[in-house]
């Protein structure tokens, strides 16, 4: 094995890792904020919104992420020349970059999958708890904030950890639309040095480390959240 390329490409790898972290964190934060309402309306209605949410989840979960990414980047890109004045607009500097498209594609992907997870989470909270909260005089929003959402998240915590790992491992797709994440840097090393094994191993090692951090983080979170105990009441 030959690792002589490592010092030369080290700084590029650090830049790549930073891009990967950004891709993952932004899309998780935005995707999860969408997933909560998407899950909730499927359980609590109204009917129209619940159908819309179901349709959204079905489309997102039913199509490969790579196709979504390319539709969003190259598909929308091919329409720009027909839009008058778009290149003079204030949006153009954003529309030119590849990074926002990657974030957008990953965000709706997280929203689609985690929306389904949250639906199950909300549905799994025992009715009695919600009724008890209401009987205490809580308003619907207070019930959601103090009882329903925390209990739902608690239910699906391990699944959400999986979702984060899954998102991390979707990020290399961004390299296909010129975003130089850690995988993109690894690809560059392969292409410039004609070495395959070492750069791929190195990149795989980085992903394992990052996954390890996510897993540990969720372990810590799960331990902090008190487990629901069946008690007969004192």
């Amino acid at each position: 094995m030959d690792w002589s390329w490592l010092p030369e490409y080290g700084p590029k790898f650090i830049g790549g890792i930073w891009i990967t972290i950004q891709l993952m964190v932004y899309s998780l934060i935005m995707g999860m904020s969408l997933a909560v309402p998407i899950g909730l309306v499927q359980v609590a209605g109204p009917r129209v919104l619940s159908w819309l949410a179901l349709a959204f989840c079905t489309v997102i979960r039913g199509t490969p992420l790579l196709i979504q990414l390319w539709l969003i980047y190259y598909g929308i890109g091919s329409l720009f020349p027909y839009m008058e004045g778009i290149r003079e607009s204030w949006l153009w500097p954003i529309l030119r970059e590849a990074f926002p498209y990657a974030i957008f594609a990953f965000t709706i992907s997280v929203a689609g999958y985690a929306g389904e997870v949250m639906r199950a989470g909300f549905a799994g909270v025992p009715k009695g708890e919600l009724e008890a909260a209401r009987a205490m005089g809580m308003r619907p929003f207070t019930v959601l904030r103090r009882i329903w959402l925390p209990r739902a998240v608690q239910n699906v915590m391990p699944t959400l950890a999986n979702e984060c790992v899954f998102t991390l491992k979707s990020t290399p797709l961004a390299a296909t639309i010129t975003v130089f994440d850690v995988f993109g840097v690894g690809t560059m090393v392969r292409q410039e040095t004609y070495k395959i094994y070492e750069p791929l191993l190195f990149v795989a090692g980085i992903y394992i480390l990052m996954t390890g951090v996510i897993v540990l983080l969720f372990r810590w979170l799960e331990n902090r959240v008190p487990r629901p105990r069946v008690s007969s009441g004192a």
């Binding site: 190259y74 720009f80 030119r96």
Partner: peptide, 14 residues
């Protein structure tokens, strides 16, 4: 990654 991809982005104005 491919020749036709940069042509697509040239056309798109990116």
């Amino acid at each position: 990654q491919a020749f036709d991809e940069h042509n697509a982005d040239l056309f798109a104005g990116r």
